[in-house]
Design a binder for these strands. Structure first.
Lengths: 208, 208
DNA sequence: GTCTATATCGTGATAGAC
DNA sequence: GTCTATCACGATATAGAC
């Protein structure tokens, strides 16, 4: 931890924590100020309004969210291997930031629309890694299933993100403790990996 | 539509709509009253408080959520066929109630805990259909992969629910229109079905 | 930059007339 | 049962002292 964060940084960090946990509507400026060990006036002094502070946090969260994908894709490995590593990284990342997917999805679903904008920019950075071209090439060569890339992304996101998002729901439904769920998540991860790899890179015959 | 709903019913229906769309923290009693064409006093007259009204709605939503699974399981068909039908029904159901999963997951993640309680009751009803025993038997016979049933449920929920939850996110990331996303969802559904069935009921050799 | 005090508004909930 | 009026409170935001 930074031993001497500025007031601005402290508020920003507190805001990130509180917004991610409770969403825009679920918390107040005072709560954020308190979490930062400051008072409300300072929140508005530095960020003008709750809304503007939120926009800032949301954009940075969206960046975390999208950039968490990008690094693996630059490595020099087979597509299947990249996929395995990617899934592993995603689970690891989501264990550290379990609130992130819900936060993004919820705030994107708010009518007011929040800070929706050109997140395409970051997404294009992923395209730049060449991963999409690599997939298309693999599909032409027959090593990868014929499937549009949006579906590929959706399959990965569904299977990696949902389990962390639904933690409390699953714990309640199945009456699990925290430790039991963590274990469950670990074995689930290996199922997800095998299932996705098997489906996307079929080994035997019939690709279609 | 009921041509002559009572005031109580009107408020309940409005509350369901508003709560599902915006969550507990995201709306006010007045907003619900307005949506019902009534005033705030009546909301509290019939339901005493916003919180109690919410509990009511949440429980009924949870019921919808869990019971949406139950019917298929009573039919007389092969396990694989049941799975296919179940996934189809889930997608169908979620198209009609796209806010439901997000709503449940969010409110379960709220610290205050909302109306968390014995949803196990409904879940046990699923167990009563015998589907779990059927799975265990199939696993012993080798027609179904060795996998714990919590993971099976999580795989299904992830792949069916996430795509509708993340609609706005995916639309934004991939710059899709509503119509394009609906199409995408349709082809995605068939991938999900094939992927899950292939994984859970492997046809060839090595189950493990 | 930081704080206290305050203005203004919207909220949940109720009292009381009809 | 239904409405208006109202209360007490907490919210966002700002003004002004230091």
């Amino acid at each position: 931890m930074k031993k001497d964060a500025t007031t601005e940084e402290k508020i920003k960090a507190a805001a990130k924590e509180v917004f991610l946990a409770k969403g825009f509507a679920g918390c107040s400026s005072r709560e954020i100020a308190k979490a930062a060990g400051e008072n409300v006036a300072l929140v508005n002094y530095y960020f003008r309004s709750k809304g503007q502070l939120f926009e800032l946090i949301f954009k940075s969260a969206m960046e975390d969210f999208l950039l968490s994908m990008i690094h693996v894709f630059n490595s020099e490995q087979s597509l299947e291997q990249k996929m395995r590593i990617f899934i592993e990284r995603e689970f690891e990342f989501l264990t550290k930031h379990p609130e992130l997917p819900s936060f993004i999805i919820n705030e994107m679903n708010r009518e007011e629309g929040c800070a929706v904008g050109e997140h395409t920019i970051h997404f294009e950075k992923i395209a730049e890694t060449g991963i999409f071209n690599e997939c298309i090439k693999a599909q032409q060569e027959g090593t990868m299933r014929e499937i549009n890339l949006i579906s590929v992304i959706m399959l990965i996101m569904s299977n990696c993100q949902y389990p962390t998002m639904a933690k409390n729901l699953m714990k309640n439904i199945h009456q699990l403790t925290d430790e039991e769920y963590t274990l469950q998540l670990k074995t689930h991860q290996s199922h997800v990996t095998e299932m996705l790899v098997n489906y996307l890179f079929p080994k035997n015959n019939s690709t279609k």
